[in-house]
Design a binder for these strands. Structure first.
Lengths: 365, 365
DNA sequence: TTGTAGGCGTTATCAG
DNA sequence: CTGATAACGCCTACAA
C-alpha cells in the first residue's frame, strides 16, 4: 500500500554530471527555509537521459512509454529518491490526493467512528484525510466547507446542519458525500433506522410498556426527525403512545437536563436521539432514585464507545458509524476515479443491541 | 475568524470590461472537469486596473502597497469573490496552511481529545488539520510521517512509536512537535506524571494498601515507562511494594486479559497505563465476582471520555490531553511564524481524579 | 509605490 | 513513442 521509497537524507550539493554517468543523489539541495527539497522530474530526466515530459508520463500513467525507458526512468527515480510534489501536481490537474471530512462536533464520540472509518479507507487508497468541525453551527460549517473545497478532491459532510440547497451547491463543484442525511441529487449514506427502531419498540412493548417518550436532538438534525418518525410509526404499529420531548443539546448534559420532562411525561420507556442523551438521562434519573430498568427503560441510539460502560449497560439502536464513514469515503473515491457507483443513497442497517437499561417494568408508575 | 466572503454561484461568461467599469463577477468560469474555478489575481488586477503583482502584494502582506490601491484591490477581490489557490501559493513558497497530526490509534479515545485540541487551535489560526494514524506500528508511522511531510507546514506526533533518531530527522526538515514523549532537540509537550501519581499512590496508601501493581502499556510507549517509573518512585516514598505487569495491548480487551495476572500478583491496588486497560480489567474482575473497590482498587490513567460511566466510576490520573493537542499546535504555529516559543519541552500537569473505583480495603486479601 | 519577468514542479498539447 | 513548449496561479527579486 505504501508507495513512497525511503527518504534518505542527502547532503550532496554538487552539479549533476553527464546523463550517462551514474549520479546518485539529486542536484538540488535546499530551498526556502532550510528545508531539504527532493529531486524533480528534471533531475530524473537528466539522469535518465530523456525529456522531463517523458518522465512525467512514465511516472504518472504507466503504459504511455516504452518498457525500456520506463524502467530506466523508474530506476533513476528510485536512485534519486524522487517523490512528486503534490502542489506542483495539483496546479495543472486540480487534483490533490485528499478528501475532506466535516463533522458537526469533534467532542461527540459518535463522530469518532465516522472519522476512523473515513480515515482508514482513505488511507488504504492512499488518500489523506483533512478534518474540520462545524461546532454544530451551520455558518461555521459552510465556512469550513468552502475553505476545504479549494484544497480537497472531495468532501464528506457528516450530519451536516446546513441547507439542502447549500449542500447541492457545494456538490456541484466537487464530489460531495453526505452521512446521516438524505439530500436529493447528492450521494448519501444513511442508516436505515426502521429495523432497529422496530426491534426496540417491539421489545419495549413485549415488556409491557405503554407510553414511550422520544427525546429529540438538534432541530437542524435530519436524523433526529427521521428517528422520531420511526418511533412514531413503530409505536403506532405496536399500539403504544409516543410523545416527543425536546432537548437543549445532544450531549450527556442535555440528557441530564431533560430528566424532569421525562418524569413529567409519564412515560415508562424512553428512546433518545443518541447515546449521550441516554447516558446523561440515566445518570440523572438514577441520581434521583429511579431504578433502571425496573422503573423506567432507556434506549439510546448509535452504540457509541462507552455505551456498555454504564450500569446497567445501555440498550441502544446501533448505527454502523464506522461503516458510514468508510462507505462515504468509498463513494467519493469511486466518483473521483470515474467509476460512478450507485447513484442513489446507500442504506446501512441498524439493529437493536439489547443490554441492561431496558426491560420489564417492576413497579407501576 | 472566518475570512472568506460569501461564495455566490456565478454564471457570468463574458469578457471583462474595462478596468474602470464595475464588473461584478470573475471572468473565468470553468476549467478541468467542469469545476467552477474562482477568480485569480489576474482577474482582480484587471478589474482594479493594476498589475497582478501588486494584487499579490496587497493580498499577502498588507502594508507593501498604498492605502488607496490596497482598498481598491480589496474591494475588487471581494467583488470577484476571490480566494487564493493554496497550491499555487504553496508552489513558490513551500508553505501550505496545514499541519499534520499522526496518532498511534484512532480507535483509542485518548487521542480524540488530542485531535480535538489540535484541530480547534489550528482552525482558530486558520490552519487546517490533516490526520493520519499509525495503527501502533512504527513502520506505518514513519510512512505516514514522510508522506505528510511533503504536504504540511508542520507535524504533530502524538505518542510516536518510532525512534528518537527518526523523529529528529523528520524535525530537521520541517517543524515537528511531539506529544507524550520527550525527544532531545525537538519541542515536546508531555504531561508531568509525578504530581498525579503521587496523589494516587498517597491516596492508596492512606487507604491501607501495601501492594500495588502497575499494568504496563506498549513497550514502545515512552509514556508507559515514565508512568512505571513514577509509580515505583511514589510507592517507594510511601513504602509500598510495586510490581509491574505486562499487557498485550492497551485496550479494554487487553485489560480483560491481564485480570488473571493481577489476581495472581496479590496486589490490592492496581494502576494501569491507561483508562482502557483499567476499564477492561475492572469489567473482568467484576465478572469474576470481585468487588471494586472493596476487594481491589483500580486507578486508570488519562481520564478519557466514558471513564465516569462505569460502576463504580473510574478513579484516574487525568492527563490534559486536549491541552496537549492544543499546546502542540501552538508550538508548531509559533515556530512557523518565526516566534520561537520556549525551546524546551512544555510540561502540563496531571492530577488525581478520585472517583469510586479506589478506596479502602474491606476484606483481607 | 508599482510594474516586469522569471520561476516553483507537473501536466497537457502538439509536433515530430 | 518522445521532445518541445505552454499553461496552472502565485510569489519575488529587480527595475522603473
Amino acid at each position: 500500500m505504501a508507495t513512497g521509497p525511503l527518504l534518505l537524507p542527502n547532503g550532496y550539493d554538487g552539479t549533476v554530471t553527464d546523463a550517462t554517468e551514474s549520479a546518485t543523489v539529486p542536484a538540488s539541495t535546499k530551498r526556502g527555509r532550510g528545508e531539504k527539497s527532493s529531486a524533480t522530474i528534471y533531475d530524473i530526466a537528466k539522469l535518465a537521459g530523456v525529456n522531463p515530459s517523458t518522465v512525467s508520463r512514465a511516472l504518472s500513467k504507466p503504459g504511455r512509454v516504452s518498457a525500456k525507458t520506463q524502467k530506466i526512468i523508474e530506476d533513476a527515480a528510485e536512485q534519486l529518491n524522487y517523490q512528486v510534489n503534490p502542489f506542483a501536481r495539483a496546479l495543472p490537474t486540480g487534483r490533490t490526493q485528499t478528501i475532506g471530512l466535516i463533522v458537526a462536533d469533534i467532542t461527540n464520540p459518535t463522530f469518532f467512528d465516522i472519522i476512523r472509518g473515513a480515515e482508514t479507507t482513505a488511507a488504504a487508497r492512499d488518500y489523506t484525510l483533512v478534518l474540520a468541525e462545524s461546532a454544530e453551527s451551520p455558518e461555521t460549517e459552510i465556512t469550513a466547507a468552502r475553505r476545504m473545497m479549494g484544497t480537497v478532491d472531495g468532501l464528506i459532510l457528516a450530519s451536516p446542519r446546513m441547507d439542502d440547497e447549500l449542500i447541492r451547491e457545494l456538490a456541484s463543484g466537487k464530489p460531495v458525500a453526505v452521512i446521516n442525511r438524505e439530500v436529493d441529487g447528492v450521494p448519501c449514506v444513511v442508516p436505515d433506522v426502521n429495523k432497529g427502531i422496530s426491534e426496540a419498540v417491539r421489545s419495549l412493548a413485549a415488556n409491557g410498556h405503554k407510553n414511550v417518550a422520544y427525546v429529540a436532538g438538534p432541530p437542524q438534525s435530519w436524523m433526529s426527525v427521521r428517528r422520531w418518525e420511526g418511533v412514531q410509526a413503530a409505536c403506532e404499529w405496536s399500539k403504544l403512545k409516543a410523545v416527543r420531548l425536546e432537548s437543549s443539546k445532544p450531549t450527556v448534559d442535555g440528557g441530564r437536563q431533560v430528566a424532569r420532562d421525562v418524569m413529567d411525561s409519564g412515560a415508562t420507556a424512553v428512546i433518545t436521539y443518541n447515546d449521550l442523551l441516554a447516558i446523561g438521562l440515566m445518570q440523572e434519573l438514577q441520581a434521583g432514585g429511579m431504578r433502571v430498568p425496573d422503573q423506567i427503560s432507556i434506549v439510546g441510539f448509535d452504540d457509541i464507545f462507552g455505551a456498555d460502560f454504564t450500569t446497567p449497560p445501555l440498550t441502544t439502536v446501533r448505527s454502523p458509524l464506522g461503516e458510514c464513514g468508510s462507505r462515504a469515503a468509498l463513494l467519493l473515491l469511486d466518483l473521483l476515479l470515474g467509476q460512478a457507483g450507485p447513484e442513489g443513497t446507500v442504506r446501512v442497517e441498524t439493529e437493536l443491541v439489547l443490554r441492561g437499561s431496558s426491560g420489564r417494568l417492576l413497579v407501576a408508575n
